[in-house]
Simulated scan of single mutants.
Amino acid sequence: MGKVVGIYFSGTGNTKFCIEKFVSEIDANAICVSIEDKNCIKEIQDNNFIVLGYPIFYSSLPKIMKDFLVENKMLFKGKSLFIMTTMGLFSGDGSGLAARVLKEVNPEIIGGLHLLMPDSICDEKVLKKSHEENKQIIAKTNEKISFAANKVKGGLPTQEGLSKINQLIGLFGQRLWFGHKTKKYSSKLKINVEQCIGCGKCVKLCPMKNLMFTNSTVSQKGLCTLCYRCVNECPKQAITLLGSKVIQQHHSKDYY
């Protein structure tokens, strides 16, 4: 198998938690690096077995992840690739999304894995669950991660999301109706200037550098990748995206 490295994008922590656990169970010495990390490119270049992880938005790739793969696809040429995705409901072909983006450079796609995690869209009531229910979701996902890691070590990796049937499920599940929301970066982030205290936390956290201070308040550049990091971390619940009110902020670490 050779040396393993995890490469991921994680909005609110779900994918980071899952890929770190999965990779550590395959190789205790392996590391995981975010695509936001300056060392990410070098880690892809230096390793032949890559576990790629990302969340699913509307049965689609986050725009930031798709752009990263398109811009750096040649780095994956000749690599062995296992693709792991996280989601609040289902995706159909979550792992197949990245596989198709990288098809041109023909990496060896050895397997795929889909993992349910607590919902992180904190300004919509859909999929909201109690603290105990979220802990149960995490417990089941932990079991699935361990099972899948053992399958990889045994030479029979799981193949979730990689078939043509999975592609159709993803298309008709959400992507056909909502996939347009992830094709471009969004300018629909809403910041309540009366609630905003100008702490700057959101500006520092944004993976797209979409947010900035203007006249002591936060404004945006229209480059939101829908990751919900700022919405979940705002101490005054002053930021929304899909809804108009924060219902329940999501912090993955609360359920581990």
Rank of each mutant, 00 (worst) to 15 (best):
D27I: 01
G198A: 09
I41S: 00
E160L: 03
G222A: 07
H131V: 14
E133R: 10
S10N: 09
I138N: 06
N48D: 15
F49G: 09
C202T: 06
F68Q: 02
I41D: 00
L116A: 13
Q45K: 14
I109R: 09
Q159S: 06
L242E: 11
N142C: 14
I26R: 00
V231Q: 09
E108G: 01
L97P: 08
F90T: 13
L189T: 10
L69F: 05
I137K: 00
S187K: 13
T85Y: 02
N134I: 04
M117R: 02
K144T: 10
S244D: 15
L89H: 14
K16A: 13
M87E: 07
L171Q: 12
M117N: 00
L89K: 15
F49E: 12
K38Y: 10
T15H: 06
V203S: 08
N47H: 14
K151G: 05
T12G: 10
H180G: 10
H131W: 12
S187Q: 09
G92S: 03
A149K: 05
R175H: 11
F82Q: 03
I7K: 01
V70F: 08
K125Q: 13
V5K: 05
G170R: 01
G112S: 03
E124A: 11
G94H: 03
G154F: 04
K135H: 01
K79C: 00
E20K: 12
K209Y: 13
S130E: 08
I56V: 15
V126N: 12
Q248G: 07
R229P: 08
E25N: 14
S186G: 07
P107E: 00
A149Y: 03
L69C: 05
T240E: 07
C224D: 03
K188N: 13
Y256N: 14
L156S: 15
S252Y: 13
K3D: 15
S186V: 01
V193Q: 15
P207D: 00
C199H: 09
I169P: 06
I247H: 12
A148D: 05
G11Y: 05
F57V: 09
T225H: 09
R100P: 02
S120V: 05
K188F: 14
Q195V: 13
V126P: 04
A98K: 05
L113D: 05
A139Q: 14
A139R: 11
T85Q: 02
I83V: 11
Q159T: 10
V101W: 07
A28L: 13
N106P: 07
K245N: 13
I110S: 06
D37L: 09
F178I: 05
S244W: 02
K125A: 14
N39A: 14
C122G: 11
S60A: 11
S163F: 07
C206S: 08
V4S: 04
F172I: 04
I83F: 03
L171S: 10
T12V: 08
F22C: 04
P62M: 05
